[in-house]
Design a protein around this nucleic acid. Structure first.
Length: 426
RNA sequence: GGAGACGUGGGUGAGUGGCUGAAACCACCGGUUUGCUAAAUCGACGUACCCUUACCGGGUACCGCGGGUUCGAAUCCCGCCGUCUCCGCCA
């Protein structure tokens, strides 16, 4: 969430920024927040004064008892009892104001960066870097990946239905090997680039989900394990970023670079049809994530570096891709700037999102209480993350784009991982 | 899952109702001293919020988390979470 002081001091920047998202009534929301904060300060000032008085009197009571002046002590005790009620009233109201303030802040999305364009939805996104070459053209009879999956024994959605339900693919044989290879390739590339590998919990508590912004905004998108009140992670961003919740790190240690592979779970209820067939959208999928905790002064350089790194992964795989810079309306609630990577799916003849790289500035760290120390002062860090990469659509594009009459050719970087240069029909 | 012990500042570790935001030691930082290093010595050394503000300063809260008792809680009571030990079960 945004900081109240930012809302106070940079009201113009924030209202114009939020307008890029078409966030309604920003001025009113900000005015409400500032009024609540004023009220909070006022209550605290009053309550603190009374508490100070109580502490002084209590100290005196102790002295009086010690020196045997019981009568005076008893009189003062009655005096303090009177204060108690007043303090309690103020503190009760303060608690209500705190809750209201928190809720009001949670309702305001992050402010888009100055370079982000105004827009309603995906149609307004900028093509930041178009694909430079020619898109591959497939011979007649080329098949979408869900048909290739059957012919080559890559994965089965039917088996997933049997064990679980729709949207839980079961990778088999060379398909499972391919998936494992991609995970290894991505983790190796990420660690080579300085990201420290982590194996993470797949379930997180409510506090973690709240700190990275999945709650309360996207509650319906997560699987909730009610018996233990835990959530299945929709992305490893959640446990990875929360590793540093509440920490104060040395500025010299920034940026902290983390990576981790996890399955991801998303309910994504209510959408069916051709555009979600096969691996295009599933409830469980594999993803390797990168996270950076950065110095605010250089966080956009880090964002550029992450974009370059993800671009290299896709180049290594030989997949045609383009980079979008999302418009205000299409960005996630918590993001200040987001680049989406899309690979060309030759048989479906459409672009598929495979990575989303974002700078959240202090929006997450404010709730994470994630700070760094500079001289005596502590400041919120910036947090960034990106997929590097999400597997299903990569697999879809690899299968479709590289299909030949003799099999599916694998890019060279995968040969040693998969143990062969092409996939064969079964 | 059962029984017991425990949870204090970056670390070790005192503290069982007021003199404790918290001893002492270690680490870290700054100064002095010393050919260098080391040692010695002095000082500073948690976080958040509020007030004041040029600077200085003052107040409140926090001793796992939440509630309660009390004029007053790190200290007493209740609930929760976590750690350790023993038992049971188990990939």
């Amino acid at each position: 969430m945004l900081e109240v002081n930012t809302l106070r001091n940079e009201t113009d920047r924030i209202t114009t920024g939020l307008a890029k998202r078409y966030f309604p009534d920003a001025e009113i929301a900000i005015a409400d927040i500032i009024a609540l904060d004023d009220r909070r300060k006022d209550l605290q000032t009053k309550a603190d004064a009374l508490l100070a008085e109580r502490n002084t009197l209590s100290g005196e009571i102790g002295q009086l008892f010690k020196t045997g002046k019981k009568d005076e002590a008893t009189a003062k005790r009655e005096q303090v009892k009177g204060l108690k009620e007043e303090i309690e009233t103020l503190q009760t109201e303060a608690a209500t104001v705190d809750t209201d303030l928190e809720n009001a802040l949670l309702a305001v999305p992050n402010v888009p960066h100055g370079l982000v364009v105004k827009g309603h939805d995906e149609k307004d996104n900028e093509v930041f870097k178009a694909f430079a070459g020619d898109l591959p053209t497939l011979p007649d009879g080329a098949k979408p990946h869900w048909e290739l999956a059957d012919e080559y024994g890559i994965f089965s959605l039917e088996l997933g239905v049997r064990t679980t339900g729709a949207g839980f693919p079961v990778f088999t044989g060379q398909g499972a090997r391919l998936a494992r290879s991609l995970v290894n390739l991505f983790l190796d590339s990420n660690t080579d680039a300085g990201y420290v590998e982590h194996q993470l919990p797949l379930l997180v508590n409510e506090e973690s989900a709240r700190a990275t912004g999945q709650l309360p905004d996207k509650e319906g998108q997560m699987y909730h394990v009610t018996g233990d009140d835990l959530y299945l992670i929709p992305t490893s961003e959640v446990p990875l970023t929360n590793l540093y919740r509440g920490e104060i790190v040395d500025k010299a240690d920034l940026p902290l670079k983390l990576t981790g592979y996890t399955p991801c779970f998303r309910r994504e209820a209510g959408s069916y049809g051709a555009h979600v067939r096969g691996l295009n959208r599933v409830h469980q999928f594999d993803k390797v994530e990168i996270v950076e905790l950065a110095d605010p002064a250089t966080s956009y350089e880090r964002l550029d570096a992450m974009v370059a790194h993800v671009g290299k992964l896709l180049t290594d795989l030989g997949l045609p891709f383009r980079i979008l810079r999302l418009c205000g309306g299409d960005m996630g609630f918590t993001s200040a700037m987001t680049y989406d990577f899309e690979v060309w799916s030759a048989a479906q003849e459409r672009w598929l999102e495979v990575s989303s790289v974002s700078n959240f500035e202090t929006y997450q760290s404010n709730r994470l209480k994630l700070r760094y120390r500079e001289d005596k002062k502590t400041e919120l860090t910036h947090t960034l993350n990106g997929s590097a990469l999400a597997l299903p659509r990569i697999i879809a594009a690899l299968l479709e784009n590289n299909q030949t009459p003799d099999g599916i050719l694998l890019p060279e970087v995968l040969h040693t991982y998969v143990g062969k240069a092409k996939l064969e029909k079964i």
